[in-house]
């Protein structure tokens, strides 16, 4: 698998969520994703970026443009040094939230992408990696 390009963005404020959406959109267009695929990936990115801001006070998003045997994809890695998630299974459930949201963030984002991987250690931080293929 080849990684064609990478970029890292910081998420420290609500404005950065908008910026993440714009950059992910631009990359998805460049990779010639269909409009629905673009929208799904941008929405997933928006959810995860906001989660990171709400629960960990911020973090970073790394974008990677992938190519594997003629398939094009985008991979986003959200990394924070927040409190971490004790029970990932529970956190993935729709309707579960420790904050004021609807609790659709993680489970919802997962349904919008082809690959979803979450690693978290309480007290250390959380890393969520998603990918969508064209």
């Amino acid at each position: 698998m080849g990684i064609l390009r990478t970029e890292k963005l910081a998420v420290d404020s609500a404005d950065d969520i908008v910026r993440v959406r714009q950059v992910v959109r631009a990359w998805a267009i460049e990779r010639r994703f269909s409009l629905v695929d673009q929208t799904k990936l941008v929405t997933a990115a928006s959810e995860l970026a906001r989660n990171m801001l709400l629960y960990a006070g911020g973090g970073t998003v790394e974008l990677e443009s992938l190519e594997e045997q003629g398939r094009h994809g985008l991979r986003l890695t959200f990394e924070d040094h927040g409190p971490g998630i004790a029970d990932i299974g529970l956190a993935m459930k729709d309707g579960y939230t420790t904050g004021s949201g609807l609790g659709l963030g993680l489970g919802g984002a997962k349904r919008l992408v082809n690959e979803f991987d979450i690693q978290s250690r309480p007290g250390v931080g959380t890393s969520i990696r998603i990918a969508r293929w064209r």
Binding site: L35, V36, T39, K40, T43, L104, G108, R111, L112
Partner: peptide, 14 residues
């Protein structure tokens, strides 16, 4: 609402 937005929202569970 745009079609792509509607499809995404439904998938999101909203």
């Amino acid at each position: 609402m745009r079609p792509a937005v509607a499809i995404t929202l439904v998938e999101l569970g909203m």
